[in-house]
Write a protein that binds this DNA or RNA. Structure first.
Length: 182
DNA sequence: CGGGTTTGACCGGCGC
DNA sequence: GCGCCGGTCAAACCCG
């Protein structure tokens, strides 16, 4: 059903590098499209002009041959992908190691659902951006595989600027533990 | 009262 | 067609 795939770093990495991993691609020819600016905006975490080391994300994409599809998200066949092409929204996931499920990412969210998902003891939570007319959603899911890992998935693009200051992002960045391939 | 969350119902897609 | 699964709705509820 989902028109994207989530990719995790192979777990065969060294302990030091094994924390993190993710990201996903909004479409099948992903790599080239991950300009920092766009990724930042789509994530909805940052003001457009903020400079942050999100470029690490690009490294992950560039190195995606070393990544492993964890299979948590179904991938649509190309046929269906084309059908949905015009209506597709950007969709990004990332993973944090954190005690708390919901990170303060600077936007206001209203929870509209919670579901138990198969093969996971933790429920998945569904949130919508509360800003009038803004259609962005996100899902938050803690993995039972590794209880400290929280996957956050953003869908859509905010139609408005972020209200809160940028400092909030710092602690998220700290938690993101982005895999650095170097 | 106004905004949020909780929670079971509902619904559509998909596989059998 | 049926049942499972994941996503959403919405009524009830909660709280400042």
């Amino acid at each position: 059903m989902e028109n994207y795939r989530t990719i995790f770093q192979s777990s065969s990495s060294t302990p030091a590098a094994s924390h993190l991993s993710v990201l996903n691609m909004a479409n099948s020819h992903a790599g080239a499209e991950f300009q920092d600016q766009r990724l930042n905006q789509h994530l909805g975490l940052l003001a457009p002009r903020t400079e942050i080391p999100i470029s690490y994300m690009n490294n992950i994409v560039a190195q995606r041959n070393n990544l492993v599809d964890v299979g948590t998200v179904e991938v649509k066949p190309d046929e269906k992908y084309k059908v949905e092409k015009k209506s597709r929204k950007p969709k990004y996931a990332f993973q944090t190691r954190s005690q708390v499920d919901v990170l303060d990412d600077g936007y206001r969210w209203r929870k509209y659902g919670q579901k138990a998902v198969k093969n996971n003891r933790f429920p998945r939570s569904y949130y919508r951006c509360t800003h009038q007319g803004c259609n962005v959603k996100k899902q938050i899911q803690r993995l039972s595989k590794d209880e400290e890992l929280v996957v956050t998935t953003y869908e859509g693009k905010h139609s408005h600027p972020m209200q809160k200051s940028m400092e909030n992002f710092e602690h998220i960045l700290g938690q993101m533990q982005i895999y650095n391939s170097s």
